[in-house]
């Protein structure tokens, strides 16, 4: 796939939150991109590093994470194609967490200078990126509530609801079936659970026939039931009414 296609994913992602005028869309599509193919579990930027470029997720799944003293990993957020998970590095250059791939991935590196001159030239693009970081903060709040207060089954169900909703919004799922390329330890690391505990509770969710998970493929069998277990309300994702939302059946 070519660079244009990946920049279109960026535009698509931004437009799940706010529509952009054609001229601004065009400017985004002109951004210079250096494509890089990466293996799974590869660090893109490490904590403490200074960066001079932003990283657009083009293919695959990327996460922000931190490692604590005893070596345990907390996955802080999951990033899908079209995301620029380190857009904040434009203004905060030293990374305070790591950014790494969870699956084989293609990333597009965009020099800070290019993003900066674009945001200076277009307040709409600037606002679109600002909005992205605000919505990300909203997602962090939701994760904080989950890790702090939700019981394990609800936490797992919430992650599944959020994942398929985001995948659907960017056109990578039909809202029923979606690629879920996460291993069980990775899901556990995102939810602050032990792998054994996560496996047990995920099994209960599957036995309740809310979802089916087979070789990286998530199939929602009972969306209402899953949302109710998760207490999932997609408002915090701030999706445009036009962006695909999963309907209750």
């Amino acid at each position: 796939m070519d660079k244009q296609h990946y920049l279109e994913r960026l535009v698509l992602k931004l437009e799940t939150h706010v529509p952009l005028p054609p001229a601004e869309r065009e400017k985004l599509l002109q951004l210079p991109l250096t494509l890089k193919r990466l293996e799974a579990n590869h660090d893109i930027v490490r904590e403490g590093e200074l960066t001079q470029q932003c990283c657009l997720v083009a293919e695959g799944l990327v996460c922000r994470y931190k490692i604590v003293g005893d070596g345990a990993r907390q996955i802080l957020s999951l990033h899908l194609p079209g995301d620029i998970p380190d857009i904040h590095s434009l203004l905060i250059e030293r990374m305070d967490h790591c950014l790494g791939t969870l699956t084989p991935a293609v990333v597009g590196l965009i020099p800070h200078e290019a993003v900066r001159s674009l945001t200076r030239a277009s307040y709409r693009v600037s606002e679109a990126f600002w909005r992205e970081t605000l919505i990300e903060a909203s997602i962090y709040r939701e994760w904080m509530v989950g890790i702090g207060r939700r019981a394990a089954p609800s936490r797992i169900a919430h992650l599944l609801c959020e994942f398929i909703t985001k995948m659907t919004a960017i056109g990578l799922s039909d809202g029923v079936i979606c690629n879920l390329p996460l291993t069980q330890p990775e899901i556990a690391d995102a939810l602050g659970l032990s792998t054994v505990h996560m496996n047990k509770k995920l099994r209960e969710i599957r036995e309740a026939r809310l979802v089916r998970i087979r070789v990286n493929r998530l199939t929602v069998l009972d969306w209402k039931g899953l949302c109710s277990l998760a207490e999932f309300d997609p408002d915090y994702l701030h999706l445009q009414p036009g962006a695909a939302k999963i309907k209750d059946d």
Partner: peptide, 13 residues
Amino acid sequence: NAAKELLAALNRE
């Protein structure tokens, strides 16, 4: 260790 962690987690639930 995982067994002990699991018990502690189930206990909290």
